[in-house]
Design a protein around this nucleic acid. Structure first.
Lengths: 339, 339
DNA sequence: CTGAAAGCGCTTACAG
DNA sequence: CTGAAAGCGCTTACAG
């Protein structure tokens, strides 16, 4: 079934069928109804190979925006963007990347606007969970610019698709790892992430809930926040360990593992404290080799970036993401051997 | 840069450029040289979007062949085949699947021949590591039918690409998991796989070598072979455990985990024996829920199947696999929480 | 509101 | 050995 055949069946031109298919309007209601009926009856679906060839003429620009500055986790996400971009050169696709540091809503809004000015056709963003961002995504949608959230999602928004990990399950996985590492006996200190990132909150909840269930003998001694910042993480861990020298195990919810490790080493606890963390970024890998970090839970950052851009391309070709509105990475447990 | 532009620069028709690009011959040597030089100078590469549209007319058939019968691991690989096939309908691609039971070389050869008769343009096969298979792959290559090996590779062959896991590293990962599970103290029984499958051999070697290094106190008490068969695995484990009641830990190198578990349960060792195995097939998951299997190392079977078909398609479009001659899956550690 | 034509980049008969 | 034309399926001006 092709557009041509549909056109013949309806006694109209291919142009008219195209107008109906892409809701360009300017078609007599009766004609439109006939065409829609025929499309439905024949089970017609647009052939993406044909569509792909026409995409090239528009040279579509995908806007990408992540808080990657000072956070090496995102190096991999960005590498995934670039890999997908490379695969799409033949379709004339470009990825316009903007980065920021930290989680300031005003800054994120400003960068989204810059991308809009630059003429992006799809937005790929790691959104702050704030209603002003949600509102901007809605406005973009009204303009015909769909949004894909990557790495972390935003509640109640009209984003077309989320590409990232399942945070609650990631937290539970970390709890399971904690059981293997501690044998169910520990005085635990927790270093949390950023409270305005939905994922970080869900991950911590998942961890604590499941840990209570499977390791009732692990005592959570204290919690501090690293704010996704190395220095902050270092200082807060230092203070926590001074307050509670009985802590023998640490759980780092988000980034900042290196800072936490520095504090542990400085206090001379390297041989006695065990750490479970997230993501195999280079500095964490270093600490794994040193034996301080026993295991990490990973969320396939490269694949997140790659799939987000591919999903944007799917939207271009088909109007929707073929994978549905969520593309969820697996939580992987990594130890030294399978890094 | 398009074919059209190259043609203009050389003062020939697009057809002639096409003949050179695809080595169809029948071009005057001087003309060919000129065209090749121009292509090189301009850095021309074929646009896959254009090529894709012409693929449809040929309705290419990919032949797929795996020893999936009686081995549920391959259900996922096949699901990956199907998923990729679905994505390629618009290009007229079909996957013709043949399955077999066990690892008989004659049978594998016969099925490859059936696929050839059926007109396959690319072969995707889980090859037995035997020189007769290697020879057949060579013959196919001479006929212009490239081969992709999936799940396990074959030595010295001229297959274009291998899609599967890194077995030595998978074995090492299992050793690392073993350390976490046992704390470095165990009387270990090993249930091995199939000796004519390259991957199984490499995995076992990787495991034993690394285990000796990181857990010198783990004693390997005995080894038996499961031959990738449930029943066999059951009987061999039973005998091994009767011979060596001191065994408190089992390592299952390949499939057959369920048989091993049945033997353990039957002997009343369910509460005392710990098992590390491979692949989260349903029956193994059941044993994980029961607490008998503590952790498994997985090799992304779905992705293996998916990527193998995608690689076949890449070959169709570009003549090579863009990912190089090996597409290697990650070894993932799975526990109950991240299944 | 609608159709005819040209185009995206590559390939395939066909004619010479 | 080579070129001109038609085609894969969709979209885009343009003319009416």
């Amino acid at each position: 079934m092709t557009i041509k055949e549909i056109a013949q069946l309806c006694g109209v031109s291919r142009g008219t069928v195209d107008r109906v298919l892409n809701h360009r309007g300017k078609v007599k209601p009766e004609t439109e109804a006939l065409i829609l009926r025929t499309i439905h009856r024949m089970g017609y679906t647009k052939n993406i190979a044909g569509k792909a060839l026409t995409v090239k003429k528009n040279a579509p620009v995908f806007g990408a925006l992540v808080s990657s500055e000072g956070n090496p986790f995102f190096d991999e996400v960005i590498a995934g963007f670039r890999k997908a971009e490379e695969e799409l050169v033949d379709y004339g696709v470009t990825v316009l990347l903007k980065t920021m540091r930290g989680y300031d809503v005003g800054r994120q809004l400003a960068l989204i606007d810059e991308l809009t000015e630059a003429g992006m056709t799809v937005l790929v963003v790691q959104p702050i969970n704030d209603e002003r961002i949600e509102e901007r995504i809605r406005q973009l949608a009204e303009k015909g610019i769909p949004t894909i959230t990557v790495n972390t999602d935003i509640e109640n928004s009209c984003r077309l698709c989320y590409v990232g990990s399942d945070y609650p399950s990631g937290g539970e996985t970390a709890a399971g790892v904690m059981r293997m590492v501690t044998r169910g006996q520990a005085n635990l200190g927790i270093v949390t992430g950023v409270s305005t990132l939905l994922g970080h909150v869900q991950r911590l909840e998942g961890f604590e809930r499941h840990l209570k269930e499977i390791c009732p003998d692990i005592r959570v001694v204290d919690r501090v926040s690293a704010m996704d910042d190395m220095e902050h993480s270092y200082r807060m861990t230092l203070e926590m360990l001074r307050r509670h020298p009985e802590i023998d195990t640490l759980f780092v919810t988000a980034s900042g593992t290196y800072g936490t490790c520095r504090a542990v080493i400085e206090l001379g606890y390297e041989k006695t404290i065990r750490i479970v963390a997230f993501d195999n970024v280079p500095s964490t890998v270093e600490m794994m080799r040193r034996g301080l970090v026993r295991a990490v839970v990973c969320q396939q950052p490269f694949l997140q970036g790659y799939q987000a851009i591919r999903a944007a391309f799917d939207i271009l070709l088909t109007g929707t993401t073929k994978q549905g509105e969520q593309i969820i990475m697996e939580n992987q447990i990594k130890i030294l051997e399978n890094l």
